[in-house]
Design a protein around this nucleic acid. Structure first.
Lengths: 226, 226
DNA sequence: ACCTGAACACCGTTCAAGT
DNA sequence: ACCTGAACACCGTTCAAGT
């Protein structure tokens, strides 16, 4: 058992390496959004002087980049076994992206706003040239098709995460904003706010959109007007 | 002519109403990103004591919400004349969304992460039930189709804006990060970084994706597996 | 009614000091 | 080698005071 007075959060239990700091940073971001990550909060959570973190990261920006990189890396780890059909593989990758981004919705915009090296090269599954070729995409269309799919998948989920956070009233410090939200919910009929907040519905929307996009991109060499 | 010593930025030239404050806030956000908007910077830009802003907005959060609302409202103002074909109207609305969001790329994630009342009701053009019905979408599919289109359009542009800002090195305080970026650019072949940074190419990607999505959504009642 | 400026409680970061 | 704590220059905001 730990002694009673070795710090507010039992410091020393974890030896304060980079991973322990990244994990604590993710906790703070999950709990209070991106602004919840402050060097002082981080020190308190780790049971350590705030300045101790500077021994492992040059500054807050470097720490934050490491946190985002940590999540970006997870995007490449698509769980198997995988289907044979290339189209189905692409759908699976898309659904996996969504799952990873929603694990830390407050960080989703940052993860999605960054290039994804792993989707190009490393990792067990990659959106590779060969995959798109196997799916029947002509070589010269691949960058465009890859762009459309990537931006659809990441953009969809970022907006999903942001909407959920917004309606939930992220920084619910003031009741006034909530009251205004309630009004707006009543205004919405077409958008069907309730529909948007149900994860079981949203994942279906996501898969529908992804398949429709794949189908639309695949059946026509170009949808652009002459 | 203004006298030489009436403040660092000729205060009094504009009477400091809400609109003048919102305009100055947008300037600061455009120049230095979301963090460039501070009450002290705002006061300096307006040639006024920072606390003067509190006479017009309750706090910084209220000011920021007003700025985002200002941009959200612009989304509804689709310039005419409009085509007759409902599908073409939807494409035009999407392209207009892209233009508005890219006017203030640093604010795009905030604008896109918010519900868009105007797209439902007010404004000269709305993504209305009637529009989707005219485009041949079955009533029960409309929420799902509207979701897919809205999230594709807004998500695409948010990611576009974020990627451009990222490669440009938004907060280019440190050269080290730029060096790392240069390495990464070399790594990318499939994603075709140069392609992604060319606005003339990106708008074609956007329109292609939007049309493919519309086509895919329209030709099949459901793309979901049984 | 609107603006000012000192003050307070935060923040990231520097630096000299401890072990 | 790693952690500490005082100090500095920022930040949003409160409040008493000016006009």
């Amino acid at each position: 058992m730990a002694t009673a007075d070795d710090g507010p959060r039992r410091r020393g239990r974890r030896p304060l390496d980079r991973q322990a700091i990244i994990d604590a940073a993710l906790e703070l971001i999950d709990e209070n959004g991106i602004d919840g990550l402050t060097m002082r909060n981080l020190g308190r959570r780790l049971g350590v002087d705030p300045m101790a973190v500077y021994g492992h990261f040059e500054d807050k920006a470097a720490l934050f980049e490491a946190v985002v990189d940590h999540e970006t890396t997870r995007l490449a780890a698509v769980p198997g076994p995988l289907p044979d059909d290339p189209t189905e593989i692409i759908v699976r990758v898309g659904l996996h992206y969504r799952t990873v981004l929603l694990d830390h919705p407050n960080l989703a915009p940052q993860v999605a706003g960054r290039p994804l090296p792993q989707e190009v090269r490393a990792g067990p599954v990659t959106l590779s040239l060969d995959l798109f070729r196997a799916a029947g995409v002509a070589d010269e269309d691949i960058p465009r098709v890859a762009n459309a799919l990537t931006r659809f998948a990441l953009g969809f989920v970022v907006r999903e995460a942001a909407e959920v956070a917004y309606w939930a009233g992220v920084d619910d410090a003031d009741q006034l904003r909530r009251a205004r939200l309630a009004e707006r919910v009543d205004e919405l009929d077409l958008r069907a706010a309730a529909h948007n907040l149900d994860p079981d519905q949203t994942v279906l929307d996501f898969e529908l959109g992804l398949r429709a996009l794949l189908h639309g991109l695949g059946t026509h060499r170009s949808h652009l007007p002459a």
